[in-house]
Design a protein around this nucleic acid. Structure first.
Lengths: 239, 239
DNA sequence: GAGAAAACTTGCGTGCACGCAAAAGTCCTG
DNA sequence: CAGGACTTTTGCGTGCACGCAAGTTTTCTC
């Protein structure tokens, strides 16, 4: 049974629904699935905050959520993914929604950049505390960075709709490039203080202090992609 | 001890050396490391071909290479990575080398595209057989696709040198976008035959037939990025 | 409303994957 | 050349992560 949104399957089974208005209300089975997923995320984050990230096992999370460890792995492929999922709270899907919400006359490159900056910096102090938690462990940091790949499927859908004649492949490459740029900006922002290379590999100890302005990093990372967006938006024959 | 080139560390500790001529010859320790890595790769591929990909355990590979399973995991983070590493044979680094080898007057977007197409299609029948092996198992396919991320670090170094005033971040975003585009092209090419979505998740059974022309897919995937390369090459202020 | 089909949960067994620490090997310095 | 420093190998223990199959729950059809 395939519930786990494994990274390799994300592009093929997006959780984001571009047209939720016309779908029928979910049945009991679907509601129970969502409830289980939410319970697992909440338990993962709560236990990680209470006990420290190393003090939480899959068995603990599963028990707190009222399911078996096997069921946990039906929903999340690793211990870290549940914690990160609770922290990011489907932000990746919200990036696409924010792009879709921009007026059609806005330059697409600007719309994408503004949406990313808005969603990645407009966070409450709840996430700030959780982000501190994440930065203390390399496995959590990696899972947090890996989650940027989730930007691609919903953004592909939005870009495909905005760029009618460009084709699915072009939309997908642009969306994947945005995800890559966001990851690079976050990596630079979360790089461990001091001797970065030596400490980055350690599971603990290296104190990671978010450095510099995240909006500036995000804008700088996304800027090189603007000409690609402009060309497709003008419907130039690319290449 | 950090020998494993884990995906998360690749960007920070590239194996590709931009200037090998001036480095001193490696010592015994370094030569033994390279020999161990080569032995593990060779053993992994040979055993996978002989017994089928499911018939090979880490313990088997380690024994065939003359090291312990713990040492195996010092070099490779998963069973699949050794097999894929043997198949791709550092192709990702060769992409960057091929770009670097292009004359300076060649349009950079063309140089990158031609280098990618050349390295991903100019393969002997040795790899063709190994590719068939990879496509029969989803875990191997995923590891094969994940390996495209290795394009980024060496290509970043080459782009940073070619685009002197663009900065490391821009080079990195462009290189990461190329890696993303290559992955998308390969995903489309290796998508399972018939009902793709239903079978893709299965570990076995789904017969994956490389479909369509890989060069065409690669060129199509890379085309949307050309304006981004052109803008940076012309040293336009991007954004 | 009952039965079949589909989906989900779960126990079990197996093979990892990794941190830790001790032992061994390599390199460097005096 | 010997000893210290650094790196690598390895055993051990632990916590996963997943495939398989049986049981349970939900949905659908007649």
């Amino acid at each position: 049974m395939q519930i786990c949104e494994h990274a390799s399957l994300r592009a093929r089974s997006p959780v984001w629904n571009a047209d939720p208005v016309t779908t029928p209300p979910p049945g009991l089975r679907e509601r129970k699935k969502q409830a289980t997923r939410a319970a697992l995320r909440e338990a993962a984050l709560r236990l990680a905050v209470e006990r420290g990230p190393d003090g939480v096992r899959v068995e603990d999370i599963a028990e707190a959520a009222g399911v078996s460890p096997r069921t946990y792995n039906n929903y999340f492929a690793s211990r870290e993914q549940a914690i990160v999922s609770a922290v990011t709270a489907d932000r990746e899907a919200r990036v696409a929604a924010a792009v879709a919400a921009r007026p059609a006359g806005v330059r697409l490159a600007d719309a994408v950049t503004d949406a990313v900056v808005e969603q990645y910096t407009g966070t409450g102090e709840h996430e700030h505390g959780a982000l501190l938690l994440i930065t203390t462990r390399s496995a959590l940091r990696e899972a947090f960075l890996d989650a940027t790949a989730d930007i691609e499927p919903p953004l592909t859908a939005v870009l495909a709709e905005r760029l009618e004649n460009a084709g699915e492949s072009t939309a997908r490459v642009l969306a994947a490039s945005v995800a890559a740029a966001v990851r690079i900006a976050l990596e630079g922002w979360l790089r461990p203080a001091g001797t970065a290379g030596a400490l980055a590999g350690t599971g603990a100890g290296g104190l990671v202090v978010p450095s510099g302005s995240l909006p500036d990093r995000l804008r700088a990372a996304l800027a090189p992609l603007a000409p690609a967006f402009d060309a497709v938006e003008r419907r130039e024959p690319v290449r």
